[in-house]
Design a protein around this nucleic acid. Structure first.
Length: 340
DNA sequence: GTTCTAGAAC
DNA sequence: GTTCTAGAAC
């Protein structure tokens, strides 16, 4: 299937944004577009690519005008963009064009029809359609080692494009090799850099950019995510089953709402700094049930503006509240609470 | 989000 | 001298 790329068309030169087939993506002011203009909403447009038919549908979410060529889309309206047409994110500025290409960025001409750059052969298991696991099927061994690094930089003829790092979850959740559970509404993946022996992420298939985008009719979905998280905990057959917490980061770095399901041992080489620690052990970590309750009560979820300050708090043990001077000392201290 | 590294802390 | 953090770059 062709790959859809949204290419910035002025001199900002930010990397093209890859759109996955029929997956809604919200774009606006933010790191992916490098747009800092306050006239542009953080959720200015919703885009959905049809890679088979070769167009993108765009819906204007923000108040200020998004254009396709000279035509204003208008808030709430939806139009299509085809290759050759130009999308202006807001106020006739920040132009983008659409490209559909078979290959992910090749410096060499694709005209030769070279198939040499098909680097990875898909595993046969992937070919036979959906694999739908029960959560009970998942292995219980924690696999924390991040993928081998120090791979040589990709050659000029086959760089791999995965979009801005903040979009990484959207890529991972689509990868069958990452999925440990899925149903019609959510998918569960292991956190790529787990901060504890067990650390899963529950993600809705629907594109919900952040807690701020949650609406009252998402309550059902959030409760389902919580139930699936519960199931993940229940299927964990660790002899010394740790305590778990489920919740959301107040200000997550990664796009796409994701529920953390994390064991409270925090025994992981991937937990390396104060930000990691405080993001799971202060109020920066908002319990799933609190998010649901807030959404039911207020019809929306708001986080304290000062939430990011919580990440700078001194390192304090989550069990006994004792303050620790450094991360290595904290890790030593955590062992005193461990039953194994 | 991670990696890298300068320089602070010890 | 080494360890560790924090900020820049990605």
């Amino acid at each position: 299937m062709p790959v859809c790329l949204l290419v910035r068309d002025d001199d900002s030169h930010h990397k093209p944004i890859q759109l996955h087939h029929q997956q809604a993506v919200t774009l606006g002011r933010g790191p992916e577009t490098t747009i800092k203009d306050k006239k542009c909403s953080r959720e200015q447009v919703e885009l959905r690519a049809d890679c088979n038919r070769g167009f993108i549908s765009v819906k204007q979410l923000g108040t200020n005008p998004t254009n396709v060529d000279n035509v204003v889309v208008g808030k709430g309206n939806q139009v299509t963009i085809k290759p050759g047409q130009r999308l202006y994110m807001v106020n006739q500025m920040y132009p983008y064009t659409v490209k559909f290409t078979e290959e992910t960025f090749t410096a060499r001409s694709a005209a030769e029809g070279s198939k040499a750059s098909k680097r990875s052969h898909r595993m046969s298991a992937e070919g036979n359609g959906e694999k739908t696991k029960s959560p009970a099927d998942t292995t219980s061994t924690s696999d924390c080692s991040p993928p081998a690094k120090k791979t040589p930089p990709p050659g000029p003829d086959k760089p791999e494009f995965n979009g801005h790092w903040s979009q990484g979850l959207k890529v991972s959740m689509q990868d069958p090799k990452m999925q440990v559970y899925k149903d019609d509404r959510v998918v569960v993946i292991k956190d790529k850099y787990p901060k504890a022996r067990y650390h899963w992420l529950v993600l809705p298939w629907d594109s919900i950019s952040s807690l701020k985008a949650l609406r009252p009719d998402h309550v059902d979905l959030l409760e389902h995510m919580q139930r699936v998280g519960d199931q993940m905990v229940q299927q964990c057959r660790d002899a010394h089953k740790p305590h778990f917490r489920m919740g959301y980061h107040a200000i997550p770095s990664m796009s796409h709402v994701h529920l953390h399901v994390i064991s409270q041992d925090f025994d992981s080489p991937c937990l390396k700094n104060k930000k990691h620690w405080n993001s799971f052990t202060t109020d920066y970590f908002v319990e799933s049930q609190d998010v649901v309750a807030m959404l039911e009560r207020d019809g929306q979820v708001t986080v304290k503006e000062a939430a990011s300050e919580l990440l700078k708090l001194p390192l304090r043990c989550h069990e006994c509240r004792k303050e620790q001077p450094t991360i290595p000392k904290l890790k030593e201290h955590l062992k005193t609470h461990q039953s194994v």
